[in-house]
Design a protein around this nucleic acid. Sequence first.
DNA 1: TTCCCGATCGAACGCTCGTCCGGTACTCCC
DNA 2: GGGAGTACCGGACGAGCGTTCGATCGGGAA
Lengths: 218, 218
Amino acid sequence: MEARPTYDEKLLRILRESAAIFAAKGYHRASIRDISAATDVSLSGLYYYFKSKEELLFLIQDHCFGTLHHRLDEELEGNTDPVARLRIFVRNHLRFFLSNQAEMKVLSHEADVLTGEHRAAVQKRKRAYAAAAETILTELGPPGGVEPRSATFALFGMMNWIYTWHRPDVDPDADRLAEQMTHLFLHGYRTPIAEGVETLPERSGGGRGDAPSIWRTD
Amino acid sequence: MEARPTYDEKLLRILRESAAIFAAKGYHRASIRDISAATDVSLSGLYYYFKSKEELLFLIQDHCFGTLHHRLDEELEGNTDPVARLRIFVRNHLRFFLSNQAEMKVLSHEADVLTGEHRAAVQKRKRAYAAAAETILTELGPPGGVEPRSATFALFGMMNWIYTWHRPDVDPDADRLAEQMTHLFLHGYRTPIAEGVETLPERSGGGRGDAPSIWRTD
DNA sequence: TTCCCGATCGAACGCTCGTCCGGTACTCCC
DNA sequence: GGGAGTACCGGACGAGCGTTCGATCGGGAA
């Protein structure tokens, strides 16, 4: 005999299924009716668990971000070597990303959908997480040539872009990817830029402005 | 006396304004009525320029990708040094991205909205562009440790993530960013991974599975 | 048994959406 | 002047959306 699920269990199941649907169709194109069908909960029955579609998105994002950051703190605990800490950070991020692809896609892809207090709450989480990342980078010492802010976002770009290309059957798992990305980042970050060698001469006589718009009229 | 715009000029204007609106609100949330208001063309009048909302998105993406790739070929022409070619590739991509942020955001963010032939046509463009990138990376010689496929996407991730963070008033311009990202990528890509030094010991006795789901039930 | 309350549902409301139809100026050519 | 064709518009249609309302069901308390 199967025990009836508690309120919390059922809410978590709804959040999980909703995340999968938002990830597949996108937040705006996914309808509450889709979620109703996937969860076998009636349309109106769902509103017992959240007040609005936006709150549903918020619950997913908030829980996801909170868990990600919480795990990071656990993993970092007691570790003081700067390089090891960077490695742990990347590994934690990628493990979490690949184990919760739907949720993390929703987090990355629907980042600017929320409004008002929901938006503020998620952005607070995001800032705290980014600050943790920045601290870790600062501990590495001064960079060799790239600016810390650009470098931080370059690292996040590498990691967060994953959901657009990673296929579990052919691509490396999270731990191997973490090794590779840490390696990729670390060497470039600490190696100084060789003056004069690494810049490209301007293309001569192109005649076009340096920031041409796409909308050519030829 | 202002000359009346031609058909093509007006279409391009509509595409430009639409791209800005899609970038700001997202494809699904932006309505044809929004575009009508922004362009001062009536709702039905717009359908003289495209057959459906999806075709409008296609026209933007197709034109954008086509121009990006076309520019790349122009810039690469006559240049044979592998490192210089990589540098040109990154610079071209970033220049284009920052000069056409709205269009490139639409390209990145609404990548899997199109269906049928529209989707196929854009994916063909994307594959051709990615192939060009892969060729450039191959010319660099064998990587030092990271896999070429992961490395390629890591590079694209760095570059394509830009639209989420770049602020023209505080961040470096396209050319400086290109220098930095090329540097970042190149050193990591060619430096071998030091055996045994760069791997992290498993966390001892964590007791949790290695790919824990977010949806803890505690 | 009766009452209450958390959990759930069917049916509807008001709204916005993409798209289409019929019509109308305007311009050029005969 | 008359016909053709390009450019454009007002207004509507049907579908789908998020949300709400009143009713119902089942189990523990009195």
